[in-house]
């Protein structure tokens, strides 16, 4: 149920974002002096903002940026987190203790603050944005993957592979990695909405992307500050943003119900 609903939402959003701009009749950056804060009509389907720009096109193009940042930053965090967690869990012992201590220390840093500092000081580049977010979010993934790896390593089938004469690298690749896939996919799916949320939060503070580039967070910020004049310039970006986040969260939940080893165990027991 959750899975289907989440997928449906995401497909809808993706279709809109991917195909929608083709049908758009307006340029997203052109300022229409005669149509400032205009309500939705036949020309401006979702109205215009206070500066007279087409909300329809801006929302869809902003969505492309938000999604791109979400996907790339998640990729960064998943890649770092999986490698780090797997190595720590598999080697175990002192190495593991040391590596996890580092994660503990990093957890203790007010990371979001550091990301804000980075954005403030080093300009608002797209790539910097997703590297900064990705470097912040990998910690969760590292912990989850490390815990799973530790649990898997203690499983008799992994020990059997060792007793069979499989080398450690092969065990990691053939016995452990396939069993991690589910967890990684689930938590990666749940990381994407987190990233989009952080990006939109930064954009809301004016620390995200700079004009003319825009994202949902930036649009919501603009919309919110003029909501009495042009409420539609708040509603539509906000609606899209929420739909996307709900979609990803539902998808992740649904996948977790289906794939997470703990819930799977319960299913096979009954």
């Amino acid at each position: 149920m959750k899975l289907k609903l989440g997928l449906a939402l995401l497909v809808l959003v993706l279709l809109m974002i991917g195909v929608g701009p083709w049908f758009g009749t307006q340029d997203p950056e052109t300022i229409h002096w005669d149509h400032m804060a205009a309500a939705p009509d036949a020309t401006f389907w979702l109205g215009t903002d206070v500066m007279g720009r087409d909300v329809y096109m801006r929302t869809l193009l902003g969505g492309q940026v938000s999604l791109l940042v979400g996907l790339l930053a998640s990729l960064v965090s998943v890649a770092i987190g999986v490698c780090y967690g797997m190595v720590a869990g598999f080697i175990g012992g002192k190495t593991d203790a040391l590596m996890m201590r580092l994660v503990d220390v990093l957890y203790a840093l007010p990371f979001l603050f550091l990301v804000i500092l980075l954005m403030v000081f080093f300009g608002q580049h797209l790539w910097l944005l997703f590297i900064a977010i990705g470097c912040y979010l990998w910690l969760d993934m590292a912990r989850i993957v490390r815990g799973q790896t530790l649990a898997l390593k203690a499983q008799p089938f992994v020990e059997a592979a060792g007793a069979m004469g499989q080398s450690p690298m092969t065990i990691l690749r053939r016995q452990i990695l396939p069993n991690l896939k589910g967890v990684v996919v689930v938590y990666a799916t749940l990381t994407i909405p987190q990233v989009i949320m952080i990006e939109s939060f930064l954009s809301f503070l004016g620390l995200g992307l700079q004009d003319p580039m825009t994202s949902w967070g930036a649009l919501v910020n603009e919309g919110a500050s003029h909501m009495e004049l042009a409420p539609w310039s708040l509603w539509f970006p906000a609606l899209f943003l929420s739909m996307t986040l709900v979609g990803f969260n539902l998808l992740g939940d649904g996948l977790r119900d289906r794939w997470d080893p703990t819930s799977q165990q319960r299913a096979s027991d009954s």
């Binding site: 939109s200 939060f201 809301f204 919501v220 909501m227 009495e228 986040l245 709900v246």
Partner: peptide
């Protein structure tokens, strides 16, 4: 709950203000 988690507070806050306050 999913909607609650997925809706940023800078979206919810203007909504609440618009309805409950304005």
């Amino acid at each position: 709950a999913v909607i609650g988690i997925s809706t940023p507070n800078f979206v919810i806050a203007p909504l609440l203000i618009l309805w409950l306050a304005v």
